[in-house]
């Protein structure tokens, strides 16, 4: 927080804490491997168009479903497109969409959760029942409903994902806030007469932030899975743009005769999700958060 007191005090405590958390994450094998995988994927997504061996649209009628060889390292698909090219570029859409939607989800879910945890009362009772009802519905049903109503495309997918994945964040933020609200320093702030907004900003946010960071990482991996699933079902990225979900869906029909087109996107997606999970685990341990308490949706 960069409010008044931060200018008053030398900011010796903050940076050293961030640095020590990063050091702590990297010192664990899970954190090191996880962070390596995540960073590698993000770099690939950013720069793959510059060094992809082929044009991702280029079809080759002479090499349809050809197995891996010297030209096509990972083989070709049913239209003769290079699988290596399509795989390294296949995460771009998924990572872009989820990297925008995740902070949005954590922001709105976190804010509402912190507010409800602090305010309590009738509003909290009612809204939390709504949240429970939402969580009881299968996510795919809710997502499909939105997409059928508003259509596909990034402009619909980002707000849809941000909305639905913010709902479980409300629960986490509310629970973390309730633990803090019960403590005397929040009572002290109330007794001094601070406003609710001021209490949220000064007393609660800094203490809930750790839990939200870990929760955000987890939401990201779930969101990736959701995005890929939508693509798989044909509601995400439209062809010919390469996408892991789409690639898996396309290669499904030829699994018996040519399994290789499916392997590469599966491995790419899994490695990213495993990387995110490992990082989240190491982050939780470094921050001293009990991940066993966090709800999984």
């Amino acid at each position: 927080m960069s409010d008044g007191p931060a200018t008053l005090v030398a900011t010796t405590a903050r940076p050293s804490r961030i640095a020590s958390v990063i050091r702590e994450v990297l010192s664990r094998p899970s954190g090191f491997i996880g962070l390596f995988l995540v960073i590698a994927h993000v770099l690939l997504a950013l720069f793959s168009p510059f060094f992809a061996p082929f044009d991702f649209k280029a079809m080759n009628a002479n090499a349809i479903l050809s197995p891996p060889d010297a030209t096509h390292w990972l083989g070709t698909d049913q239209l003769g497109r290079d699988i290596l090219t399509r795989t390294i570029m296949g995460g771009r859409q998924a990572i872009l969409v989820t990297a925008i939607a995740t902070p949005l989800a954590v922001a709105w879910g976190g804010l509402l959760g912190i507010y409800l945890g602090l305010a309590g009362g009738r509003l909290d009772d009612i809204l939390m029942r709504v949240v429970d009802a939402f969580l009881a519905l299968p996510w795919i049903l809710k997502m499909l409903l939105m997409i059928v109503t508003f259509g596909t495309g990034i402009g619909v997918l980002i707000p849809t994902l941000a909305f639905f994945y913010g709902i479980p964040v409300i629960r986490i933020a509310r629970a973390a806030t309730q633990n803090i609200v019960a403590r005397d320093f929040v009572l002290a702030a109330r007794a001094r007469g601070h406003s609710r907004v001021s209490i949220m900003r000064r007393e609660l946010f800094g203490n809930v932030r750790d839990a939200l960071m870990v929760e955000g990482a987890m939401r990201w991996s779930w969101m990736l899975l959701a995005f890929t699933s939508l693509s798989f079902l044909g509601f995400g990225v439209s062809p010919p743009t390469p996408d892991w979900g789409l690639m898996i869906a396309d290669s499904r029909n030829f699994m018996a005769i040519a399994p290789w087109p499916a392997f590469a996107p599966v491995i790419a997606l899994s490695s990213l999700i495993i990387g995110i999970n490992l990082t989240a685990d190491a982050l939780a341990k470094a921050l001293g958060i009990d991940r066993a308490q966090a709800a999984v949706h």
């Binding site: 005090v9 005397d184 320093f185 009572l187 002290a188 007794a191 601070h194 000064r202 800094g206 203490n207």
Partner: peptide, 22 residues
């Protein structure tokens, strides 16, 4: 009001300067 346990009544994330500034 002053509370029983300062571990509970001082925000662990605030420096003493921030606490007194409130």
């Amino acid at each position: 009001l002053i509370f029983q346990n300062p571990d509970e009544s001082l925000n662990p994330r605030h420096t003493i300067g921030q606490i007194l500034a409130q």
